[in-house]
């Protein structure tokens, strides 16, 4: 057992972090929220060059994957930098299209890997009738029962409490795939989406914590840094605890997904609810400890605070995830070890 990221994975995270810092991702997110998607598309290409989308596309379709652990590493960084756009939906769409297994579906995969095509995906059975950023996507996929539809138009945009997220019910279009394979493929895609969202939440929580620590170290009241007060320290300590214990759940879920283990659904659900709740709690703490200025859109902090709640609920609400954690595991497959079987039961 070596339950640690290897040097290559750490270096991948570091290089994405450096790239996104240099690209001023918060400015890109603000532009995206204001309806200017050009900087977002430019950043999308940079992410594709770094291999982010290829991680969800198999080699036979010009990708590098599927590599769920590397996806988790990458999406932590995307969350940390508040990268806008249907990033989760694009990698989930890749998982869906690959599983559908037909030529028409596979045709989009190289385009996803290269970053040429931005895809969004709507799976109402996985919780939400809305597609994220459909108006900015090149392809909009909707799963309905045993069909996958390539929507013709995005549909009217419905604003989200996070202005960087735009929701829509896509309209019309053509059937891309039909049959019993669709439900299985969609369930798999939803698991990939939940994993990537959990990773985003974890990175987002860490960004909120880091910025708040920085703030309370320099903000002075009553003649001292407010970070020296116990009530402030303890909230931040709890934030760190919640994030640190979410991380191993995320990594374990990625491993389970990579192996196709029978307990993967419970593992992904555990990671999703834990990371989502940790990030939302981090947002509450960041807001409270910044005080009034945290409640404005003037600080970039707002980009993370308002994203925390939607990410917590997207691709599996906490209640849905908790139910899945306790759902009996499929009995057909035998786990390799007793430890794995515990995971399955849990």
């Amino acid at each position: 057992m070596r339950f640690l990221l290897d040097d290559e994975q750490r270096e991948f995270a570091r290089s994405l972090d450096a790239m996104l810092t240099a690209a001023d991702a918060p400015a890109v997110a603000r532009a995206w929220a204001a309806g200017d998607t050009a900087p977002g598309r430019a950043l999308w290409s940079r992410l594709a060059e770094a291999g982010v989308f290829a991680l969800a596309v198999p080699e036979r379709h010009e990708g590098l994957g599927p590599l769920p652990l590397e996806l988790a590493v990458a999406f932590s960084e995307l969350g940390r930098h508040a990268v806008p756009g249907p990033v989760v939906e694009t990698v989930a769409a890749a998982a869906l299209l690959d599983r559908l297994g037909d030529d028409a579906s596979a045709a989009l995969l190289p385009q996803i890997a290269s970053g040429k095509t931005v895809v969004t995906l709507c799976v109402p059975a996985a919780g939400s009738p809305y597609a994220l950023d459909a108006d900015a996507a090149d392809a909009v996929l909707v799963v309905e029962g045993d069909t996958v539809r390539l929507a013709e138009t995005a549909g009217p945009v419905q604003p989200s409490a996070d202005p960087a997220r735009r929701l829509a019910r896509p309209l019309g279009g053509t059937v891309l795939a039909r049959g019993p394979a669709v439900a299985t493929a969609a369930a798999h895609a939803a698991e990939v989406a939940a994993l990537a969202t959990a990773a985003q939440s974890l990175g987002l929580g860490r960004a909120l914590l880091d910025r708040t620590v920085e703030y309370v170290r320099q903000r002075t009241q009553f003649g001292v840094a407010i970070g020296s007060f116990q009530s402030v320290k303890h909230r931040l300590a709890d934030t760190l605890i919640a994030l640190e214990f979410a991380r191993p759940l995320l990594h374990s879920a990625a491993l389970a997904l990579a192996e196709g283990a029978d307990h993967r659904s419970a593992e992904v659900a555990a990671a999703k609810v834990t990371a989502g709740e940790a990030a939302y709690a981090a947002a509450r703490t960041a807001l409270q400890l910044h005080g009034a200025v945290g409640y404005t859109e003037e600080l970039d902090l707002a980009l993370w605070i308002r994203k925390a709640r939607p990410l917590r609920d997207a691709w599996g609400t906490p209640a849905a995830c908790r139910a899945r954690v306790l759902a009996p595991a499929p009995a057909a497959q035998q786990p390799r070890t007793r430890a794995a079987s515990r995971g399955a039961e849990a």
């Binding site: 620590v213 309370v216 170290r217 970070g227 020296s228 320290k233 303890h234 931040l236 300590a237 605890i241």
Partner: peptide
């Protein structure tokens, strides 16, 4: 929590 805040997060002693 004091230890976490001071040694892991680098907050000032108080």
């Amino acid at each position: 929590r004091d230890i976490i805040a001071e040694r892991l997060l680098g907050l000032p002693k108080g």
